[in-house]
């Protein structure tokens, strides 16, 4: 697994994940996308541990789309680990969640999240949101390399 990962999608809901990936694919934004199903897997990947121990930690993704409510290790904890580690704190992290809770929004920004997007219930709105953020982070935004 030496190829460069553009988007790391961390999402436990397979339907949300499928709809997200479908939307990105429709807009040709799905190249080098990796979907992980929980926080523990995400940490292993990001810090090159466990199943991903052969990976180079400095080979960071262009953007991480992170769900908050997940089994085992939740999104907030993953965010905390990424943003408090010198090697990973520059990775752009977009929280993609169903939660509109003020507390969640404040906490995420306090930890240094780069963007916070609430998934719309209505599918067309959802598609619009995913397309926008995909385009922005992969094409418009300049990430540190």
């Amino acid at each position: 697994m030496k190829s460069k990962i553009n988007i790391l999608l961390v999402e436990d809901n397979e339907y949300d994940a499928e709809m997200t990936i479908r939307t990105l694919k429709k807009n040709s934004l799905d190249n080098n996308l990796l979907h992980l199903r929980n926080g523990a897997e995400a940490l292993d990947f990001i810090f090159a541990k466990g199943a991903y121990s052969e990976r180079h930690i400095e080979n960071t993704p262009k953007v991480i789309l992170l769900d908050l409510k997940m089994p085992k290790v939740n999104g907030m904890e993953v965010l905390l680990r990424i943003k408090t580690d010198e090697r990973t704190k520059k990775i752009p992290v977009v929280v993609l969640t169903s939660s509109k809770e003020d507390k969640d929004i404040h906490d995420c920004y306090a930890l240094g999240v780069n963007s916070y997007v609430v998934k719309p219930v209505e599918f067309s709105e959802f598609q619009e949101a995913i397309t926008s953020l995909g385009l922005f982070w992969l094409n418009i935004n300049q990430s540190p390399q």
Binding site: M19, K100, K119, F123, F126
Partner: peptide, 14 residues
């Protein structure tokens, strides 16, 4: 907020 909207999104989405 979390658990009820996700299935709905799926219904609508699919």
């Amino acid at each position: 907020s979390h658990d009820l909207r996700a299935p709905l999104r799926a219904v609508n989405g699919y």
